[in-house]
Amino acid sequence: MMDYIIGHINYWLIIAVMMVGMFTLMSRTNMIKKLAGLSIFQTAVILFYVSLGKVEDGTAPIVAEGFSTYSNPLPQVLMLTAIVVGVATTAVGFALVIRIKEAYNTIEEDEIRELDAKS
């Protein structure tokens, strides 16, 4: 049992990071904090992919003498794309928050809901 837990320590940590992101995302009303939570959540998935590709004692997949075990490079390459997507999402999110601030003069979700209900 102990071996199972320690052997999968990276996944446990990733699940913890993911849940921190999810919780921030759902529990906060401040939009910037929500976006921060979203970023953390996405980062956890990126970590998950990267740790998938790691092979014990493996090196970078470049053929050279003296090395026979290589880590899988594909998940890392996939994550380059996912990072770009994540950055773009955060950027669009921040742009929206700026415009929301201009339009409503607040970035608290509950206050915006109140303002919306009035109009």
Partner: peptide, 9 residues
Amino acid sequence: LFASFNYLI
């Protein structure tokens, strides 16, 4: 704007 933000999340 708010609708779009919620959709984004």
